[in-house]
């Protein structure tokens, strides 16, 4: 007999109550989420609107719509060093994130899966230092990059960015590979596959979600990195957008609408990247809850 046929009138009203409660809770849930979304969107919408205003409107009419949308704020930044800055940022970001992720994946994999002399030492040092911030090593880092003759070069920007991102990335890969089903590799090994073969044919194809998550996180970091770039670049040839944006920021006054236009433009690629890889991103972190 099913539960429904046994239902007494009392349970019937209880169910109605629960149904009503669920609707109420559902409404409250939507209400709360919508409020949060609005609070999060307001500043972003404001920036988009402000980038279409005149300088005067930005200061004195911060709330309203722009009287006449100033689209030229966007076209004009194309005539400055901004496109070159963006190109530099792309070079720096790709040049940093790709090797960083490859090296970290390699290291995270062997640290988690293999036994060799020094494994423990490397693991402990990497984890011990993963919380080190750029600013705590800035001066000696600057002197070293200077001594290597790498100031104002892409290498001088890229190498420290790779290095600072390695510990956290290694840790994520390490966690991922720790939980990676050993049976797969074991089967391949029994078939006589070399570790290289196992890595490329078995492990890598299954690591896409975690690789993508690390790529997103580190791309956000490198794309937005400001401190090291501001100290180590003086030339236009390598200047990324984070310091290039200051071409609109004078000694005494700033071209806010154009700065905000830049801000909007540089946000777009990251949001697109997130949208494209969102599914994997969520899956990778689900993997970490183990």
């Amino acid at each position: 007999m099913s539960a429904a046929t046994q239902m007494t009138p009392q349970r019937e009203t209880g169910r109605k109550k629960r149904w009503f409660g669920r609707r109420l809770r559902g409404g409250m849930a939507y209400g709360a989420l919508i409020l949060v979304c609005i609070a999060i969107l307001i500043p972003i919408v404001w920036v988009v609107l402000a980038s279409l205003k005149t300088r005067r409107e930005v200061f004195l009419e911060p709330l309203g719509l722009p009287a006449v949308p100033q689209w030229q704020n966007y076209t004009q930044i194309l005539e400055t060093a901004f496109p070159a800055n963006i190109a530099n940022s792309v070079i720096i970001t790709v040049g940093s994130v790709v090797p960083m992720v490859i090296f970290s994946l390699m290291a995270g994999y062997v640290l988690a899966r293999r036994v060799f002399l020094g494994r423990r030492l490397v693991y402990v040092v990497i984890v011990l230092t993963f919380a080190i911030p750029f600013h705590s090593i800035l001066v000696p880092l600057y002197r070293m990059v200077d001594a290597l003759g790498l100031l104002n070069t892409f290498a001088g920007l890229i190498l420290p960015n790779i290095a600072i991102g390695i510990p956290f990335s290694v840790m994520i890969f390490y966690s991922f590979f720790r939980d990676f089903p050993a049976e797969l590799e074991e089967a391949a090994r029994l078939d006589g596959c070399s570790p290289w073969r196992i890595l490329f044919s078995v492990v890598l194809p299954l690591s896409a979600p975690v690789v993508l998550s690390v790529v997103i996180l580190q791309t956000v970091n490198v794309w937005n990195e400001f401190l090291w770039a501001s100290i180590s670049t003086t030339g236009d040839e390598v200047r990324p957008w984070t310091t290039g944006i200051m071409q609109f920021q004078g000694e005494y006054s700033s071209d806010w609408p154009r700065i905000l236009a830049v801000v909007n433009v540089v946000m777009v690629p990251l949001i697109l990247l997130y949208l494209v890889s969102q599914k994997y991103f969520v899956r990778a972190f689900a993997g970490m809850n183990k």
Binding site: D146, G149, L151, S230, I231, T234, T243, Q249, G250, E251
Partner: peptide
């Protein structure tokens, strides 16, 4: 730019 100049100038002069 202004801010990086203020923070960076001393280090730059100290550089190679």
């Amino acid at each position: 730019a202004n801010e990086p100049y203020k923070t960076g100038i001393k280090v730059m002069l100290d550089s190679n």
